[in-house]
């Protein structure tokens, strides 16, 4: 009885603390960005001529497009790769190969982001430079981000595919379905919510990734016209300018932080919608 009460209150306290931290961060962002939000109309973040915060020009659009392009590009590459790897581990690879392969992917997930950035800076950027200068570019950011979110997608997709009940697989095989027929017709619908959750998680990571992207993206504030143009992401912008920003400039950086949070919140709202499998 006592144990139950104690457990209940401990768990409640844990839940309240987690929720509170989230709300406090939101409040903190709002308070810090309030000086600007109060003075200027929010549309100016999209309509100002440029990003010159010292002169009062606060156009965040180039950074927003940089963030979105890098993230979407990375997702476009990492989703098929990640799902293919997971399918390979669960349904195609022989067991003596599947397990070491999975360990390798887990290792990839454990590499610190700065190491990815370092590798990108010293290896990837010079390579791209040979192809098309300057090297530090949207493409470099996409490739580094792809590597970083690939293990997230692979491992969550693996978990989702592996959790599909064996009865479904046997049932599908007994109906004479080919392996691909089984995967496409039965396994994907059954594992969809887990796979989508992994993709959303990966998208969140791609949007918020700062260090690695900052090291390879070139950080020029502009709308890129091609894959080889340098970009600056919202997260990189905060990291680059926070050290010396004052007054309104500092507040606008908090606004871009808010914008990032808004993006991630949108994503999780989408995830909630898509996870509802109407047939499960």
């Amino acid at each position: 009885m006592l144990i139950d009460t104690l457990t209940r209150w401990l768990l409640r306290a844990g839940a309240i603390v987690s929720a509170l931290v989230m709300l406090l961060i939101l409040a903190f962002l709002l308070i810090e960005s309030w000086p600007v939000l109060d003075q200027i109309t929010p549309t100016r973040f999209f309509t100002d001529t440029s990003w010159h915060p010292m002169e009062g020009a606060y156009n965040l659009m180039p950074m927003l497009s940089g963030t979105l392009l890098a993230s979407v590009g990375a997702l476009l590459l990492a989703i098929p790769l990640g799902i293919a790897s997971a399918l390979f581990i669960v349904f195609y690879a022989p067991i003596y190969f599947a397990l070491p392969y999975k360990r390798l992917i887990e290792l990839l997930a454990g590499i610190p982001s700065v190491v990815f950035g370092f590798w990108g800076l010293t290896t990837l950027v010079p390579l791209i430079n040979q192809l098309h200068p300057p090297g530090a570019s949207l493409l470099a950011a996409i490739l580094v981000l792809t590597l970083m979110i690939l293990p997230t997608i692979t491992l969550t997709a693996y978990a989702a595919l592996n959790a599909v009940p064996k009865e479904y697989l046997h049932g599908a095989a007994a109906l004479g379905l080919s392996r691909w027929g089984m995967i496409y017709g039965v396994v994907f619908p059954a594992a969809r919510s887990g796979i989508v959750a992994g993709i959303i998680l990966a998208a969140g990571r791609a949007i918020g990734e700062t260090m690695a992207v900052l090291m390879v993206a070139g950080n020029v504030v502009q709308h890129p016209e091609g894959l080889f143009d340098p970009i600056r992401t919202l997260a990189a912008n905060i990291a680059l300018e926070m050290a010396y920003a004052m007054g309104d400039h500092r507040a606008v950086l908090f606004v871009s932080g808010l914008l990032l949070m808004l993006l991630v919140m949108l994503l999780s709202a989408m995830a909630g919608k898509m996870e509802n499998n109407q047939y499960a």
């Binding site: 479904y168 049932g171 007994a174 004479g176 017709g185 039965v186 619908p189 047939y279 499960a280």
Partner: peptide, 26 residues
């Protein structure tokens, strides 16, 4: 040779799709 298992194993799809899936495959 059709098979029916101990535990009912309809796929997590619609009733219709449960029947059309094997048909399409064949």
């Amino acid at each position: 040779i059709g098979m029916v298992f101990q535990k009912p194993t309809p796929f997590p799809l619609s009733i219709r799709r449960n029947i059309t899936l094997p048909l399409r495959e064949h």
